[in-house]
Amino acid sequence: MATAQLAGRRPLWPLIRQYMTVFDGPLAIIVFLIFAVSTITMYSAGLDFPGRVEDHLRNIIVSFVIMWIAAVVPPQTLMRFALPIYTVGVALLVAVAMFGLIKKGARRWLNVGVVIQPSEILKIAAPLMLAWFFQKREGMIRWQDFIIAALLLLIPFGLIAKQPDLGTAILVGAAGFYVIFLAGLSWKVMFGLVLAGGASLPVVWSMLHDYQRARVMTLIDPTTDPLGKGFHIIQSMIAIGSGGVAGKGWMSGTQAHLEFIPERTTDFIFAVYSEEFGLIGNCVLLVLYLLLIGRGLLISANAPSLFSRLMGGAITMIFFTYAFVNMGMVSGILPVVGVPLPFMSYGGTAFVTLGLGIGILMSIQRHRKLVQT
């Protein structure tokens, strides 16, 4: 009787395996390693913030759940929702501009029963919409289509920049630009855009808010206001430099634990990591990000449809933008614009957005294999 019952039971591993195979193995391992590094760093950076590590672990779990859900959804299904998601996202941005909540001088949030930040939706919705747009015109893309795509991108970009939220606007603009570029934008046009952008700098400067101009001036010479606007940059550069080659050791960073580094669990967590793990640790983290980007580009290159290739390529390059901008601003080579370090900085919204992006890449890879079989 007992033997018959055991024979009727299915082994546990095959049951688990059918749910785990939705993950792309190499990509999942890379992300897991970054999560491990981020948890170790957050434990040290968040000592003076009760519950911060627990919340960070919760965000990691939520991110994995989002990855799994996104990996299960076929790219074709995702494409069908591109226009509705983009439309809802832009409508919410308009609602924010009209009657959004104001915090610290910025109108970025909307109360719809719960307080949300609609601009986060456009980090995925904008490239999703543009990828859908070019998929519909596959094989007959004209120069007019690039103009329409640019307008579709400028609408959310302008609404987000007006809030003001320059960091998110840059990320949304970059994500959309990557789609337009991968769709076949001419290098001549890009060169012309660079020249036009350079010529328009005086106009752009006049449109910036006072605090945004101060960030640019602080980048040029942070010592002009060492205890004010230049404090973040100066202290983070000291932390990075004092880490040396091998670092001061885990939980031994003086700049972090003496509270000289502001926002050390969020935008400036790279300074904490650099001080404690030094140049060697930085190289390890850079290799992990490069592996993530390389795997994402490989998945995108082998995708079966134009939509999947454009969407996958844009998501992969947005990870590069996140990492480059964050490390650049913490190192003092870019202005401070409030961009988190992927899967390292504390923040639930960023984890959800980035987890969704990784999940979409896994979906592209998984359903390509299903098509081939």
Score class of each variant (00 low, 15 high):
F277W: 13
E276G: 04
L298V: 11
G51M: 08
I280P: 11
W250R: 11
V115C: 00
A175I: 01
K103G: 09
L78E: 02
M20E: 01
L166Q: 00
Y19M: 08
V37C: 14
L201Y: 14
V114H: 10
F35L: 12
P50G: 13
I147M: 04
F157N: 00
Q365L: 02
P340N: 03
M79N: 14
L182Y: 12
L208T: 04
I315A: 00
N302T: 11
G294M: 14
I358H: 07
L92Y: 09
P342T: 05
P75K: 00
F343H: 06
I280E: 11
F134K: 09
G247T: 07
P26M: 10
L286C: 11
F307A: 00
Y86P: 10
P11R: 11
E138N: 08
G197V: 06
F81L: 15
V336A: 04
L83Q: 13
I240W: 02
V172R: 00
G347W: 08
S206F: 09
A7Q: 09
D48M: 14
I358P: 05
F35V: 03
Y43F: 13
G355S: 09
L298M: 13
G192I: 04
L306T: 02
L297I: 14
I280C: 10
V73E: 01
K136R: 15
E276T: 03
A45M: 10
Q235E: 15
G312V: 02
T321Y: 04
S38K: 02
L370M: 13
M317N: 09
L152C: 12
V203H: 06
L78W: 08
L93G: 09
L130F: 06
T77Y: 07
M344V: 10
V189N: 02
Q365Y: 13
M207K: 15
Y346K: 07
I333G: 05
T265N: 13
I85P: 08
M140V: 14
V330I: 12
V22Q: 01
P226A: 15
A199E: 06
T373M: 15
E138F: 05
L286D: 03
L153T: 03
W132N: 09
A45I: 08
A95V: 13
L185M: 15
G197N: 07
S236R: 04
V179S: 01
L27R: 05
L306F: 00
G357S: 11
R17D: 10
P262R: 12
Y346M: 12
I147F: 12
I34L: 15
G278A: 08
W187M: 11
P74A: 02
